[in-house]
Design a binder for these strands. Sequence first.
DNA 1: GATGAATGAGACTTCATTCAT
DNA 2: GATGAATGAAGTCTCATTCAT
Lengths: 195, 195, 195, 195
Amino acid sequence: MERTKKGKSAKNRIVTAAWQLFHEKGYNGTTVDDIIALSGTSKGSFYYYFNTKDELLNTLSVILDDFYEELESRMNPDLNSFVKLLNVNYEAHKMIEENISIDLIASLYSTQLVSQGQRNLLDQNRTYYKFITRIVTEGQMRGQIRNDMSATEITKYFTMCERALVSDWCLSRGEFSLSEYSHKCMPVMLEHFKA
Amino acid sequence: MERTKKGKSAKNRIVTAAWQLFHEKGYNGTTVDDIIALSGTSKGSFYYYFNTKDELLNTLSVILDDFYEELESRMNPDLNSFVKLLNVNYEAHKMIEENISIDLIASLYSTQLVSQGQRNLLDQNRTYYKFITRIVTEGQMRGQIRNDMSATEITKYFTMCERALVSDWCLSRGEFSLSEYSHKCMPVMLEHFKA
Amino acid sequence: MERTKKGKSAKNRIVTAAWQLFHEKGYNGTTVDDIIALSGTSKGSFYYYFNTKDELLNTLSVILDDFYEELESRMNPDLNSFVKLLNVNYEAHKMIEENISIDLIASLYSTQLVSQGQRNLLDQNRTYYKFITRIVTEGQMRGQIRNDMSATEITKYFTMCERALVSDWCLSRGEFSLSEYSHKCMPVMLEHFKA
Amino acid sequence: MERTKKGKSAKNRIVTAAWQLFHEKGYNGTTVDDIIALSGTSKGSFYYYFNTKDELLNTLSVILDDFYEELESRMNPDLNSFVKLLNVNYEAHKMIEENISIDLIASLYSTQLVSQGQRNLLDQNRTYYKFITRIVTEGQMRGQIRNDMSATEITKYFTMCERALVSDWCLSRGEFSLSEYSHKCMPVMLEHFKA
DNA sequence: GATGAATGAGACTTCATTCAT
DNA sequence: GATGAATGAAGTCTCATTCAT
């Protein structure tokens, strides 16, 4: 019992400290030493819980997935599925814009592009992918989304579009509003799939 | 002018050596020491011409722009402008797929996302951007591309789509063919702009 | 204590390698890369143990202090204290002349003059200073050394004289014998303190 | 004619700028680039007039020699020669302490210890050496300074003592007053030579 | 599970100095 | 005499990561 509690608190302390520092100093600006100093743990513990520093960044997808879970629960199920997709995109990008530092997202994308490990951004098992696939399937059954491509394919396309928008937002260093630009572009990008 | 010969040869030797090594060992696998050893120059010279190793990667856009210049010259000017855009995309992505290592493109994107310096990927003065804008403008005048958005906006959108495809190709580590996937997706992504 | 073996061996390997190289190629002729290559360690380790290359040079005082310790043990305690001082000087300068390269001593003095760090040459806690002070105090008690200045002051003066001789020996690039010249000058310089 | 004038002004501008910067930022803190920037000359010119940066530092001895020349002219010739020596020492060290940054003197000594070039500090042709030798010779003839050592030897000894004091002052980073300490020590160091 | 000393790798800096024009 | 682009040589820094205890 005490092992679990202690273990949890150690890992938790690391994650909490890390995210606090990431927000303050950015991902690359935060060193593992900073993290263990603030969390009151040690190098050894850090690498006991995480194989690499990058892995910490991956916990970002957990945060995002929590958001999607919450979003699904408060969404009107009867809404047109195509509109749902646009809504989901808008809400998510608004959240990212408002709550997550652009530097962190940029670091996440940058890291995933060159890392050897798993690439969460494309992990099909994420709540995110399942959520989008559900909407697409539903839309196809309801006749609100085109049927001539598989739900999986459409989901892949949709998520690529979202990554494109986020990626360009990062590249431009936030010179434009992510949610506004998504609001304008997504309908264009998805036009083809409207039934 | 009189110093061009020498100056060029020093900087050129570095760039040439760098790209040779990048192809052999990848970007991260190539050290600055490797580059100066192969080019027969020195750290001093390297950092005299480039502020960081990343800056070398930016010379990739020069290579690409050379390609676009050549592509434009061999393109049939009478082709439908919308089709031209699709062609340009296909040819470029085929070239990237065939001639440039995926690791290099991934490194370029990764670096540009977090670097402090200029971000060539978005530099509107590149031959690439001018070339695309020219086609779009021409298409609008010919009535082959929609008129309700400015040529600049459409170009921005087009290039974002291309980046999206390349980026996802990198993220998936080349599990699919970039040119094939682009061939399939671009018409969908651009559908809205066909007049 | 349990880590002593390993820790010592790493730092020790560096120090040993460094001094071997210093003797072979001189201080300035020895690069940090040479040192880590010979010691089989790394830049990281080097700068983990020493803040700068200069700091290594400071370990010379350890060597000297070892000598003084040994010298004290083999000295006849009943000898007149004033003579003792002259003896210590002569023996030390003979040892320096015979065993330590003039280039190393010159580098040590040169470095200490402009370095920001601690200046071992003047560190009052060195065995050397304590040893000299002991002789002076003893001499004062025995009535062999004048009493009208504190032992500390006399020690300071004595050591300055020694530094002067070594320094001039270095400046003249060993054109004269350090021990011979000291043998001639020290009695003159210390004359005032003979009781 | 214009060549001479221009040449002189170029070299002069370099020297003036250098010393201004040496006082502001210290010798090591001043780069050749700084000097040519302030003097409005060029790298090429700098190395046309000076073989190395160190050579600039040597111009310090010119400044000192000017001082000694001036000092000799305002000294009472009838003064006891032994006292003269003490006076010269005191006046010189007071001047150094008041007008020349300790960092510069330290750099001069440091550089001379390891430089390959000429070592002005020991250059017997300097006004300084000649001046001191003159006083010693005069004192020996007058019976005020001992005769059992050559004037050259005594001069060498005297100058070593002065260097010792300056050197220790630099090593201690000016923790004591150079002129005060010299005032106290020189009589002791020279005691032997008083006739 | 926890620790932190030690390591490895390589980027980057700094400047004095050289040399072709 | 003058210029400054180019060079060479090392020193230094930064960190993520490993491993023996």
